[in-house]
Design a protein around this nucleic acid. Structure first.
Lengths: 113, 113
DNA sequence: TTAGCACCTGATGTTTTCTTCAAGTGACGA
DNA sequence: TCGTCACTTGAAGAAAACATCAGGTGCTAA
């Protein structure tokens, strides 16, 4: 019944691996949002948004609460903010090519190049 | 031609969203590994491993170098180590239920509960 | 130059994920 | 109670990702 750890991790990352879901999480990282607010920011159909929110709910990444006739979503795991920030850093690193540069530098320490 | 940022991010996370690829990255986070070494640790077929390595290569997450008749893979972006660590923290947070607890605590600061 | 090891690639059938549509629920005001 | 607003759910076809197989490349050593 217990899944291997690397499978849980993979599933977790796959949950983040969707444009709409990333946008949702980034918006929620700023502040809580009602569904209709998310809908304004993200150009997908309402029912599709609901589906994606359901995926995030099932994964335990967001939680919802109903109030004043609207449903508001919250980031269930505050640490996700850090994860998103780190991911941005990785992508920045990749884009500026510093990744390759650092690797080359590191190699030059124990190669004769 | 230029893809929206959230799509790039989603693609990035999707690349991490596979059990074998996660294992590869975690092994490479420890130290460089030759393909046959990876094969010993991960229970998939050789050709499948190659496919997954190709995915990681295309995504720019790993790089390969040939030496002494074997191909060795390296983590191309050192920051990926941090990302994997943060992801572990998030999952730990989720599992211990501290996510919900922290959220409740945070809420209790500006609600009257 | 041939053999063999280490690894990569392309094609193919299968599973999974996505999007969309249609129908459904639940709270609230008229 | 009826309608409506805000949102969710289920089903189904389309698209993407996977695993596997067969064949291929490149290096090394005999």
């Amino acid at each position: 019944m217990t899944q291997p750890l690397y499978q849980v991790k993979a599933e977790f990352f796959r949950t983040l691996g969707h444009p709409a879901r990333i946008r949702i999480l980034e918006l929620l990282a700023e502040r809580d949002h009602a569904v209709h607010e998310l809908l304004e920011q993200i150009e997908i159909e309402q029912s599709n948004l609901s589906q994606q929110l359901a995926v995030l709910r099932r994964a335990g990444l967001v939680s919802q609460q109903r109030a004043a006739g609207e449903v508001t979503y919250t980031l269930a795991l505050p640490l996700v903010r850090d994860l998103l920030r780190t991911a941005r850093e990785v992508l920045l690193d990749q884009v500026t090519g510093q990744g390759a540069l650092q690797a080359a530098l590191r190699d030059s320490l124990h190669e004769s190049a």
